[in-house]
Design a protein around this nucleic acid. Structure first.
Length: 231
DNA sequence: GCGACAG
DNA sequence: ATCTTGTCGC
């Protein structure tokens, strides 16, 4: 499989990335409810890195939202396109993730990203960025808190507490399993927070992290290992 | 100015 | 993200 190069004109430094982020932010759509949970399709996206060889492997796994069975999978391997800078994660992952999405024949439905949507320092995290570039509904489900503030949610599955930025609710800390650490859910593009929360609960019948993310995580690790073995 | 900070 | 030792539980 060919290695995805860094796209022409891709931001080369933080200043350029911030400019792109600010421009794309103007195309964000937040007024839609988005696709209802439990029907249609949901697609999990994740990446794995090999810093030594400057490689990133991405996976896109399409699930039937009702049964959570795999409909289709695709992977891509690319060159790392940006250093890790908190708040600019999208610039590191997006070229290879888009290549994986391009490899799908099925309609991906809702995009479920490993990271934040609008609960981001400038309101435009990975899920929002990917949503705008693809035009598709997208949500972010992160495993760790970022810059938004919030209280601890209650102890039971389904309990949640607002994530606040400048007094506005930009997401929720959501307990997906009773007695287990919460995940951090935010709308990305063309979805409401309520829809994002409903999807996250529908995708976590058994584990803390959504089934989409778990499937994509294991697939991109496999893809990276195969790329390294192939040379 | 300093610390904190998705993956 | 990635690395890494040991431990607990189904």
């Amino acid at each position: 499989m060919a290695i995805i190069g860094i796209p022409a004109g891709w931001p080369a430094d933080e200043g350029a990335a911030l400019d792109v982020q600010r421009r794309l932010r103007g195309r964000l759509v937040l007024g839609e409810d988005g696709p209802p949970a439990g029907e249609g399709r949901v697609t999990g996206l994740d990446v794995a890195y090999d810093d030594e060889r400057d490689l990133v492997a991405a996976a896109a796994v399409v699930l039937d939202a009702r049964t959570l069975e795999v409909v289709e999978e695709a992977t891509a391997v690319g060159r790392v396109s940006f250093p890790y800078v908190p708040g600019l994660l999208a610039f590191r992952e997006i070229p290879t993730v888009l290549a994986a999405l391009d490899g799908l024949a099925a309609d991906p439905g809702l995009l479920v990203c490993d990271g934040y949507g609008i609960a981001h320092p400038r309101g435009f995290g990975l899920a929002s960025h990917l949503g705008v570039l693809t035009g598709r509904p997208a949500i972010g489900v992160a495993k760790k808190p970022f810059t938004a503030t919030g209280a601890e949610p209650g102890p039971r599955r389904g309990d949640s507490a607002p994530l606040l930025a400048d007094g506005e609710e930009v997401g929720r800390a959501l307990r997906t399993r009773t007695g287990v650490k919460p995940v951090y859910v935010s709308a990305g593009h063309r979805v409401s927070l309520a829809t994002a929360l409903a999807h996250t609960l529908a995708l976590t019948p058994r584990y803390r992290v959504p089934e989409t993310t778990r499937r994509a995580d294991s697939l991109c690790r496999r893809a990276l290992a195969e790329a390294l073995a192939a040379g």
